[in-house]
Computed example of a mutant assay.
Amino acid sequence: MNPHYILNCVKMEKLSILYRIWNEEEEIMLVLKDPGLRKLEKFIANNPLIHSTILHWTGSMWGIGCRLSSSETIARIETLKQRADKQGFIALIPDMSVLEQDKIPAPIRPLMNQYWPGNLTLIFNYDDPQFAGIKRGNKVALRVPSDPALRALISLLGEPLISTSVNVSGLMPEENYERIVRNYDSWFDFALLPSSREMKRPSEPSTIIEYIGSEESGSNDDIKCLREGSIPFYEIKQAFQLPVVMFVCSANICRSPMAEKLFRKMIREHNLGLATDSCGLLPGGRMISLESLQLLLERGIIDAEQHISKQVTPQLISSSWLILTMEERQRDLLRSAYPNNARRIWTLNEIVDEQGDIDDPFGNNLESYKKTCEIIEDRLRRLTEKLKNNELRI
């Protein structure tokens, strides 16, 4: 059945934004494509989607969902998918601030900070009656999707959106929008579509991780991989055990390697469960500057001579819990390049409530390097105290 499109707007400039899909006999669904926030706000004000099934793009996969509070729509989705229970329903939230922070297990908060928004689903004990209909035991599956329009929609709905793949149970999830309209058209009342460019991206399933608390395991806190998707489990496991603090400067030969090595020494002395790394904005492959090496060796950091500079990559950003730059310009460049990771990117100064840049000593005398090193040491000591006292908020 080939659907055709008809205008559902008075003004012609809205043609690409709002339309209805029909088949030969009946209206199938209302479609909103790549809307701005104002258009989305106006739409939800007039169409609150109380009992609507919603086709959505998470930023990596197509899904069918509805308001978390609509038990009758959840039951309808179960029937459509020919599934006997609610296993597999994920609750999408706009950001982790909508959760009661004291109910989130402390060991997985760094994972939330690092991978949300993104393609990681976390399953853990969370005591909130609004999730009762989709819990398995006392556990709920949660994710903050990477698509900004979908996050905005969830915020405007004022409650989580349940989400599951578009397929009959036992079949492969549908990855193509045209096939969804052709084969599953009657499933949906409303579709929120991304830009045409986003719709051409290949689908990537989320990685699903279950948190096992010490009271469950009888030993240490742990995580278990239920499905490995676009984020490798080994990376998540490493981030769970030792979250990485990444330091960034221009060339990764002066300031950022000093910060990396000095902070590694401090966290070992204070027994903080963190790892360190560093990179630069420029191409890598260079040794640490002789002046930086001398200052680190004077502080007993003998492995500094093994440092080879490297350039920042999406993988390095993804695998870091906190990214600290030496300059505001570097921070802004990274936030622009990696918008979903922006809230984890700060300058070293501002993370300890200071302003301005830490100047690059490259090309200057040893005294200039000493001054820079002393400033970095001061900021790192204050950061260490914040971490020890659980005062860091990112």
Rank of each mutant, 00 (worst) to 15 (best):
P3Y: 04
G133S: 15
P339Y: 09
K200T: 14
R299L: 06
I253V: 15
L242A: 11
L99T: 08
K370R: 14
D221I: 05
L15N: 07
L7Y: 06
Q82F: 09
D353P: 01
D378G: 03
G356F: 04
K265S: 12
G280S: 05
D222A: 09
T58V: 05
L40G: 00
A75N: 14
A84Y: 06
S155M: 11
E328M: 08
G170F: 11
K261D: 13
A337P: 08
E24C: 15
L99N: 04
V98R: 05
D303T: 15
N220E: 11
Y177H: 05
L18T: 12
I209Y: 06
P314R: 02
K310Y: 01
R201N: 11
D353L: 13
E178G: 05
N252W: 07
A239H: 07
S52T: 00
Y177R: 03
E374Q: 14
L171T: 15
Q130C: 14
V166G: 03
N341F: 12
S318F: 14
R76Q: 12
S206E: 09
I44Y: 04
S219D: 03
G170K: 07
A84I: 06
L274E: 04
G88N: 01
L18Y: 08
L122W: 05
I308Y: 09
I375H: 09
G59C: 04
L392Y: 06
I108Y: 03
G280Y: 05
I301N: 10
S71M: 09
V98W: 13
G356L: 02
P48C: 01
L281F: 07
G158N: 09
E367K: 10
K224V: 03
G363W: 05
K86L: 05
S336Q: 10
I162T: 14
E41L: 07
I209W: 03
L55D: 01
E72A: 09
F233M: 04
I104D: 07
E198G: 10
N113H: 15
K388P: 12
S278A: 10
I223P: 02
L322P: 02
L383N: 05
I301M: 13
K370H: 08
Q306L: 15
S165R: 07
D360H: 03
S256W: 05
S309P: 03
F240W: 06
T58F: 07
G273D: 12
I180W: 00
G284V: 08
W187G: 10
